[in-house]
Structure formats: structure tokens, C-alpha cells
Design a protein around this nucleic acid. Sequence first.
RNA 1: GGGCUCGUGGUGUAGAUGGCCUAACAUGCCUCCCUGUCACGGAGGAGAUCGCCGGUUCGAAUCCGGUCGGGCCCGCCA
Length: 590
Amino acid sequence: MRTYTIDSKDKIGEEIELKGWVQSRRDHGGLIFIDLRDHTGITQLVVQPENEDSFSIAEHIRDEYVISVEGEVVARSEELKNPNIPTGEIEVRVSKLTLLNRSEPLPIQIDGNDTSEENRLKYRFLYLRRPKMQSMLTKRAAYYKFIRDFMEQNEFTEITTPVLANSSPEGARDFLVPSRFHPGKFYALPQAPQQFKQLLMVGGVNRYYQIATCFRDEDPRSDRLYGDFYQLDLEMSFVDDGEEVRQTTEPLIKMLAKDFAGKKLLFEDIPRINYQEAMDRYGSDKPDLRFGMELIDLTEELSETEFGVFANSIKNGGVVKAICVKDGANLSRSQIDKYTDVAKSEGAGGLAYITYEDGQPKSTIAKFLSETELTIIQSKLDAKDGDIVFFGADTRLVANKVLGRLRNEFADLKDLKDPNVIALAWIVDFPFYEWDDKANKVDFGHNPFSMPKGGAESLESAKTDEGLLEIKADQYDLVMNGYEVCSGAVRNYNPEIMYKAFDLLGYNKDYVNQKFGAMINAFKYGAPPHAGCAFGLDRIFMVLIGEENIREVVAFPKNGSGVDVMMNSPSGVDTQQLAELNIKVEDSTK
RNA sequence: GGGCUCGUGGUGUAGAUGGCCUAACAUGCCUCCCUGUCACGGAGGAGAUCGCCGGUUCGAAUCCGGUCGGGCCCGCCA
């Protein structure tokens, strides 16, 4: 007999039972209306004074009380219909009203003013009552089902891997779990099931997947959760080319964008962009391709320039690059100052620009540039009246970074990011090694498990640091509207190449054996070639439903300091517990 | 670890050039009235020493220093 509000439209004349929360009560003295909310929506209840028992209860009901009602679904007459809610054509004439539970006045509003994120987290159980959050939770369940269906259809086998695992030497900080059996030793919660899934390949599993909880103890961002988050982790055996992984998985992501989220794909055929090209054209390895505004290299054209800032940069082996912001000439002085600060925060010395008005370039730097140079700048950037061109003159790395960041800022300013469009791109050919500025040496670019392109030969033929930096990894990221949503690689399954890759950085066999013993050991016994990737499920879901804060797509997230302000974790523990674990802390109350 | 920014009744905001602030508005809350509202309406009422500590001043929500907490970003992280 129990019904949900949305269904009740079709039940005119029927006796139904509804249970839910009181969204609001409108007491007209001799007639009381109650908006009842459940997980499906709102229904108006009418309580009449003739029904004395129910009426006296209704008189004392307050917002967010939990009630149960029985009554008849009646059609509202024309002038009483409410077009603003789905159930506005009916109401329920209450025959029996039961109070199930009371509620104190709420610290946050369900249907009204938004509140600080602190309160949204502290009173998460109330925030979740909001229709937006209810919808988020059910959509998320449908999202998981969609993904599982796809994976099963593509003959992937779901296998769970341990949560109590080993500390991994590369990557993020681990969460450690002390061992009671082995004093002084620790498990670590996995940052990803990376090693386990590779061992599954050695174990003869053909295609593995898992919706895996991953743990990382790193500072969060608005697109990065603290602590635990979810990945669609997968791996395929007998695959030695990343293209096979990309082609197997991209139908899923396209279907999620189109069929699940109802968005438009900017490219039906997902482009492959190599890493260096992405950096040069967009100043980012995760470019948002919903808009153009590409970085234009003017180094060659300005090689003879008299303008000191540009000339210096070029002389020192750097570049001069620029972006053109359409209709940006009307930027105010203070806006430009703001963007100059942004540029400086990315390492730029300043931010030169030229505006175009009445067919003329206008700029404080124009007098340093020759007529020819001004002409070629305007034509290469395709700058028209009303546009503004910003310059980055620095090392290639810094100029790309600065202009890449500005490209994003200006796209926000000019509203160029269409929320109904999904732009996907695979970024490929990441460098196998990268220059580590701090350590002043070459180090692994990403994880050391990737296969260098060209295998052992490419490692052996590289004689210098420069040579090493030329080596590409068969590694790939999927980028979605400027967010990195997937990362994968063809794995290095050959112990000799693994040792060699570490050897070139000065790590000996013992080091590798110690850090990756289980994997290296397993690889000795007939490891098949394999490749895979992992999709960041929270982040993809966030983009698909149009959220910009990843905490809004998770039921119980932690705050920016890694604290669960609702449950009050992390928290101190009994000295008894600590003693069992052989742990001493200086002051557990701190 | 660093930069920026915010902190005012339960909630959301205003007040920021120091005095008119005995802190305003909306919403929520309490009491009463009201038989067609749906952001119901009407009358009345309670509720904040302006995050905390210190300083400047005749006088501080407002200025200064510190501190605590939140958010965004960099570092970090895939």
C-alpha cells in the first residue's frame, strides 16, 4: 500500500499511504496543508478539521518531523493546481496522520539558504536530504551499474584485491596500519591495486577489473578527495600496445558521456595528442579542448627583435609564445593586473600584452617592436579589432605553464566552457624519465612500471641525460574537459628491462628486489605482456553531472584537512589498543 | 610547508571612511489569529558581548599584532 510521492499522480481516487518528512506546514486555522517530502519528491497533504485526531496532530507538527499518512489521492481543481512541482495536479486528503518522530530545528536548511561547507560536512545526514543529493546518490548507483555492465560485456572479470597491503616506494604518501602480530611492522592501504593487478596477469587472468578503493595521504583539492576515493581499475593480458587498451575502454567513456549523462561529445573520434604537442599547443598535459585559444610560438619570428625582454629569453634558449583572447581588448587595468599576478604565480616575470583597436595595435611594448614584427604577430595570432594578445617569454617550460594557466582563466572569463559538451582526448607518449629540478637529476616521470617505447634497446642506446629524457613511455592519460580522468600504461613485464630502467638512474638490483620483490619475482615465471589503466570514478562522475567540487559527489567526504567533522575522525585511541600494537605516542590527546 | 581569502543570532547576508551599532535585513524558532495555501498571510516575541587573545584609542564588529578554524591555489598528488 505504501507509495512514493511521484507515483501518486496516476492514482487519483485511490487510498494510499505515504511516509516522509515535513518540508513545510501551512496552517490556515481551519485547514492545514503539509508538504511531505520523501526520496522521490514533494506531495501536498490536506488535513481537514473534521478529522479531529489527525488535525490535532497536524497542528503541532513542525518542519522535518517524520510522519506517515493514509488518505485518498484527489485531483485538484484547475485553479488550485501548482505547476511548479511534478505532483502539483493532485493532493492527498488525509484520513489518518501518524507522527513517527520529532525533529529539533535544523542547523542547516534543506530547502533554502545554502550553508558553509563546514556545516554541509558536519550535518551530512541532513544535507543528504536535499533533492540534489538524493538524485546524486541514485545517479551514482546507476553509474556503477552502467560501468559494471560494460565491463562484464567485454569479458572483464571482477576481482577484489587486499586493502591491507604494502607500502609502495613511489608516488603518494601511504596510510599505514600497524601490525599486532609483527611489532614494528606496518601494512599500508593501497594507493592503487597496481601490483596486485599485474600479479593477476601473471596468474593467468585474461581481463581484470575492479571498482577499487584507493588511499592516498596527500593534500586535497576541489577535484581531488582526501583519503579514499574510487577507481575503475583494469588490466588486460597479452597486450603490448596501449592502443588496444584505449580502443577497448573508450566506448565506455563515450557512452557514459552520451547515454548516461546526456552530454554532447565534441569529438566522436577521440584524438591522440602526444605529450609534447599538448604542452606546446595548450600549455598543459590535461588541456580543456572545448575551446581553442592555442599557444602560438613566435620565437623564430622574433629572433631578431630589439625588445629586451623577448630578446633575452630567446638568447637564453627560451621561447616567446602568445595567446589571443577574442574580445578581450576591453579588459580593465585591474583585471589585467589580476592576470599578471596569476602569470607571476606560475613563474613569469611579468605579462606583456597588445590590444587591437581601430586596426591598430596598442601597447606599451609596441614601440620596441618593428612594424614587420607587429604585423607578423597580428597575423600569426589572427588578432582582430577588439582582441588582446598576451605574451610569455621564458623557458619553454615556464612559458607553456604560464600561458596554459591563462588560457584556462580567460576561457572562464569569456564563458567558453560549454557545460553540455564533453571533450575527450588521449594524451600519449609521456616521457619515460623526467628532469627532477630539486634533486638535480633524472628520475622516473610517472610510475616505474611502464614499458619504455623501444624496450631494452632504447634504454641501452641512451648514453646521456639528454638521451634518457628523449625516451618515451608507452603511457597514456585520458583528459575530459581539462580534467585528467584516466591514466594507464603498457607495463614493463621483463625483469631485465626493469633492472635496466632502474640501473640507469643509479639504483642497483638489490634496490629493485627490495622494493618490488613480489612483482620482479613473479615476472621470472612467464609473465605475459600486459597493459591497463585506471579511471578516476569520482572525478568523471563530477564532470558528468556538472559539479565543480568533488566533495559534492560523495556521500561522506572529509574536509580539506583530512578530518571527518561529522564522525570526528581521526581520533585518539585507548592506551590499551596502542599497547597491543606496540605503539607509543607522545601525547594521544594532541 | 607557502600564497590568497573568509569568520557577525540556528541559517544566509548587511554593516568595514572607528562614535548615529543599545548591531540591520531575510529566513528559521516561540505565542496568538486565519478553511485553499503551495516562498501562505497577519499580529506579537525570543535569540549575537560580531571566531579567540592582546594592542591602539575617550570610544573597536570596524584599525594593528597574534592565534584558531574554513575555503581556493602552489608545493605534493595521477
